[in-house]
Structure formats: C-alpha cells, structure tokens
C-alpha cells in the first residue's frame, strides 16, 4: 500500500525555501573591501584558521587589532546572525561561526594587548537541580555572537550562587534555563531573592518545561520561548525597554 502524499501533507519548509542559497545571500552581504571580506567569509564558513590568517594579514598591513574586533569580526558575525534570524541558515552554522569569531577576538586581544568594551554583561545559569544545559549553551553562544559579555554560571546552579553573581557582576540581564518542571521552581526563589536585595534585573527564563504561564508568576521574569530571543531581549534592554515593555514584546501567548 502506498499513497500520493500531496493531498494529506505539505512540507512548508520546502515551499518557503529561498531561491538563493545561503552562500549567495551571504556573499551579497559581505563588505566589499579586503581583508574584511575574506575574514567575514571565513566567519560565515566557521573556519577558525582562515579567520586568524585573515587577521594576521590585516595586522601586518597596519590595521589596529582591537579595532578589527568591532569593524570586521562583529560585522561578519552579524551577517551570520541576521541570516539565522531570517531563517536562511541554521543554528549549527551560527555555532561554528561563533567559535571562529571568538577565536578571532581572542587573537585580536592578544595582539592588541587590551579588550574592547562589550555591549553589556549577562549572567547565564541552569536552574538548581537541573543538569540539562544545551539550551543554556545555545543562549550563551548567541549572546556572545551578538557582542555581549557572558558570565556563565553553568548547570545545577544554586540560588545563592546566582544572587552572588548578580551582585558581583551587575549584569543588564540574567538568564535561567530548565528542562524540568520541578527544577524551574528555583526561578521563583531567584526572583524573590533578587527583589529582597533590591536588584530589579530582567530575568529571562526558558527551556524544556518552562512556559509563559509559569514565568508571569514572578515579577522579574520574562519568558523567552526561543534561544534566539535572548540577544533580541538584550538588545531591547540596551534600547531602553523596561520590564513591562519586554513582557509586552516577548510574551507571545
């Protein structure tokens, strides 16, 4: 028994696929001048060695190593994240590009002897009792790719440690991920302890069993349905949006 499936299902991903390939689209977005174009292409391809080689040439040619971070590396990464946001490329491409970009940043810092000021600092953690951290890994990578400094507290992170880190680092945003319904309960405690200390930092929560209905139960919570919401939320905070506006924007249900 077999069937012509066209009457019972539609693969909308095939229908919606762009005529141009991701490589073609990216090539149109790369800077025209060299060596920026070659370095951006290497970031897009996730080729660390090529990124370093391009940076070396640029520095040999007189470029300021620290300026290359913002002027070239971040530009290349933005092309990648823009294509991801448009649905043209997939997450592994972003991760591999981020690896290449971060290696490039480290190289520039070594060469230049200093570090540029990040867009902002964000503390990331996985709820106490929860060891599932791939969601947090993705969130942290996307934030770094967008130019934010990430303080990664890791998985199964005690509430005390989260509060201490927020006090020490004064981040613009805190993220929490959890896979399980029982562990996400720790987010409420984090919220309460932050408020007790007078720390009204936006607390983006998401992952596995976490849902908007749960997150709206505590004041600082903003629900992040997708990992890709994290850099968008951080950028929104930079643009001056407060808690109420963040909830208005990111609470979709």
């Amino acid at each position: 028994m077999d069937i012509d499936p066209s009457k019972i299902l539609i693969r909308y991903n095939v229908q919606k696929e762009k005529a141009q390939s991701p490589e073609e689209l990216a090539a149109e977005m790369f800077p025209k001048a060299e060596p920026a174009r070659t370095i951006c292409a290497a970031i897009f391809d996730g080729e660390e060695d090529d990124v370093i080689e391009g940076l070396e040439k640029a520095i040999e040619g007189g470029a300021d190593a620290i300026k290359l971070i913002d002027d070239v590396l971040m530009v290349g990464m933005k092309i990648v994240t823009d294509l991801y946001d448009q649905g043209t490329i997939f997450l592994p491409n972003v991760m591999m590009s981020a690896d290449a970009m971060l290696e490039g940043i480290e190289f520039c810092k070594e060469q230049g002897g200093s570090a540029p000021k990040p867009k902002g600092k964000i503390v990331c953690h996985v709820a106490e009792g929860d060891v599932h951290d791939i969601g947090k890994t993705i969130v942290a990578a996307l934030l770094r790719a967008a130019g934010f400094e990430v303080v990664d507290l890791g998985r199964d992170c005690p509430v005390d440690e989260v509060i201490a880190a927020v006090k020490k680092e004064s981040p613009m945003m805190l993220t929490g991920t959890a896979l399980m319904t029982t562990t996400m309960y720790a987010f409420k405690e984090v919220n309460d302890r932050l408020l007790e200390s007078g720390l009204k930092v936006p607390f983006q929560c998401g992952g596995g069993a976490v849902n908007q209905d749960f997150v709206v139960q505590y004041e600082l919570g903003v629900y992040g349905e997708e990992a890709a919401d994290a850099p968008k939320m951080a950028n929104a905070i930079l643009a001056g949006k407060g808690l109420a506006q963040l909830k208005e924007t990111f609470h979709k249900h």
């Binding site: 909308y12 991801y84 649905g87 997939f90 997450l91």
Partner: peptide
C-alpha cells in the same frame, strides 16, 4: 527537539 518543526531553523 532541536530540529523541531518544519519551519524551525536549528538543525536539519
């Protein structure tokens, strides 16, 4: 789950 639905862009 990372692959998700048809329109998700996280994994082939």
């Amino acid at each position: 789950f990372i692959a998700g639905g048809l329109l998700d862009k996280n994994l082939a």
